[in-house]
Simulated assay, not measured.
Amino acid sequence: MKKTIYSIMGLTTLLVFNSCSSVKVLDSWKAENVSSINDKNIIVIARTENNQARIAFENEIVNQLTAKGLKATASFTKFPKLNPDEKVSEDKQEQIKNLLINEGFNAVVLTVIKDIKEATRTVTEGGYYAGATLYPRYYRGFYGYYYNPMSYSSFGNYVPETSTTFTSKTFVLESVAYNLAEPEDKQLIAVVTTQIENPSNITKVAQEYVKAITKSLVK
């Protein structure tokens, strides 16, 4: 059961953008007591105001945990009106704590966006000749070429040069897992920092993310 906890870190909070995505694990850490969460009641939280992203990623992680034999619940099913991305006042902190206690949750998997970077890139295509004529059949004899050299071409057709400019977005995310049954200084049991470039389809990105995180933690 020890390995089952490693898959809990596959969670992220993303908005929907076009283009393809690339998931890369930048860093990861796990405590010696990481397996202590295996028998806990886990609440999975995606901190984003985008409700579609929240549902997709929380569901994906819950499915992964359930398949590993852990007990996990997506936060949106228990607390649909909770906005995980809002600023939390002291009163709100106490409300959240009481909600978790009253519902019997003693472990948390949480992900937040730590940084978003934008970059403008230009891709250039064309600017070359294609479909050149094969030698030596085309050139035939010396005299024909000598009399009319400009009528012979080995370049083929010229493909005009075109440029496309687009803006890419890179997200840096931090996924953390806590065992709330432990003393406060021992509650943190795992941290994974991940970079995702240009996330597109939410479900596919979630699956890629879970796969990348699991691969980085399960040795």
Results as ranks from 00 to 15, higher is better:
M1I: 09
K2R: 15
T4P: 05
I5P: 05
I5Y: 10
M9H: 14
M9W: 10
M9F: 06
G10R: 01
L14Y: 05
C20T: 15
V23S: 05
V23N: 04
K24E: 13
V25C: 07
D27N: 09
K30E: 05
A31Q: 06
V34K: 09
K40D: 10
I42Y: 03
I43R: 06
A46T: 02
R47N: 09
T48V: 09
A53W: 00
A56F: 06
F57T: 00
F57V: 01
N59V: 00
N59T: 04
I61P: 02
V62S: 05
Q64S: 00
L65I: 09
T66E: 05
T66K: 09
K68H: 06
G69C: 05
K71I: 14
A72F: 02
T73H: 12
F76A: 06
L82A: 03
P84K: 00
K87Y: 12
K87F: 13
V88R: 08
E90I: 07
Q93R: 15
E94W: 10
N98C: 04
L100P: 02
F105E: 07
A107D: 13
V108C: 00
V109G: 13
T111K: 03
T111P: 04
T111Q: 07
I113K: 05
K114I: 13
D115K: 15
D115T: 10
D115W: 08
E118P: 02
T120W: 11
Y129I: 03
A130T: 01
L134K: 14
Y135E: 06
Y138S: 09
Y138Q: 10
Y139G: 03
Y143K: 11
Y143S: 15
P149T: 06
M150A: 10
M150V: 09
M150I: 03
F155N: 09
F155Q: 10
F155T: 01
F155S: 12
V159Q: 01
V159D: 01
E161R: 12
S163Q: 15
T165C: 14
T167S: 07
T167P: 06
S168N: 08
S168K: 09
S168L: 04
K169H: 07
F171D: 04
V172T: 15
V172R: 15
V172E: 15
S175L: 00
S175R: 02
S175V: 04
A177Y: 12
A177V: 12
N179C: 11
L180G: 00
A181C: 10
E184F: 07
D185Y: 05
K186E: 09
K186A: 11
Q187K: 14
L188F: 09
I189F: 12
A190F: 08
A190L: 03
V192K: 09
T193Q: 13
Q195L: 08
E197C: 01
N198S: 09
N198P: 02
V205I: 05
V210Q: 03
I213M: 13
T214M: 06
T214A: 08
K215Y: 08
S216T: 06
S216V: 03
